[in-house]
């Protein structure tokens, strides 16, 4: 079996989904950790130091290239697997099996992924693109004040702000359900069959799926409701 045969087989495609997914899970830990600095409530001093470290340093900037590669691979492969799987039953059932045998979010990874993608596009347009364009995309100098940018994005009562907050909160909820299935599913795809470890991984997966998206969702809300300034 060549590597090509391996990674284009149904099992191999899931391996790609699992590895890229787990990589993104690791990225979110870094992201949520750095962003949590906004709650230092020091006018963004600590947060901007963290943002500066990530944005004006070659190491995280190179890792960022890998991050985008993993992300794009996860999205494209995910959509391809989803469409391929959907095409395997040309005539649908009259009565659906529904929630009797599986969780709705386990069956809706494609839909949840698309919701996260919508959020992601909006999120990149708010922060990453303005910041990198100020740096000329390849440069390290000239970052914008991301804390102020965050504050401006989420403060106020205009409909634009409301829509933005809605997109962020819905994106975070979708992320939570996506992870609730994704973490343990990825581990099964890697071949984890030991019941003790499946229990550990499932528990960790659920905890991660609740804590991380909840922290992310609280960030726009913290600015909007003036819990921090």
């Amino acid at each position: 079996m060549t590597f090509k045969q391996m990674f284009t087989s149904s099992v191999g495609k899931k391996l790609v989904m699992g590895f890229t997914g787990l990589f993104l899970v690791l990225f979110l830990i870094v992201h949520v950790g750095l962003n949590a600095c906004i709650w230092a409530n020091d006018g963004g001093e600590m947060f901007n130091k963290g943002a500066h470290f990530m944005g004006a340093n070659w190491v995280p900037r190179l890792l960022e290239v890998g991050l985008f590669a993993g992300l794009i691979l996860h999205i494209i492969q995910g959509l391809m697997v989803e469409f391929s799987n959907r095409s395997k039953r040309a005539i649908k059932y009259d009565v659906a099996f529904g929630n009797r045998g599986s969780k709705w979010y386990s069956r809706s990874m494609g839909l949840l992924g698309i919701l996260i993608l919508i959020f992601l596009i909006s999120h990149l347009a708010h922060f990453w693109i303005p910041n990198r364009s100020a740096q000329g995309f390849v440069g390290l100098e000239g970052e914008i004040d991301l804390y102020t940018k965050m504050k401006d994005t989420f403060t106020g009562d205009s409909w634009q702000v409301m829509v933005t907050i809605l997109v962020y909160v819905v994106g975070c909820i979708a992320l939570g359900f996506h992870l609730a299935h994704g973490v343990q599913s990825a581990c099964r795809t890697f071949g984890l069959s030991n019941p003790k470890w499946i229990a550990v991984v499932s528990a960790l997966g659920y905890a991660y799926a609740i804590i991380v998206p909840l922290m992310f969702a609280l960030m726009p809300l913290s600015f909007h409701f003036g819990w921090i300034d």
């Binding site: 087989s9 495609k13 395997k88």
Partner: peptide, 17 residues
């Protein structure tokens, strides 16, 4: 696995159904 893919079955997404 190669034969399964050839037969036109979908990929497993661990839903448990």
């Amino acid at each position: 696995v190669a034969q399964m893919d050839k037969e036109g079955f979908g990929a497993c997404t661990n839903t448990g159904a």
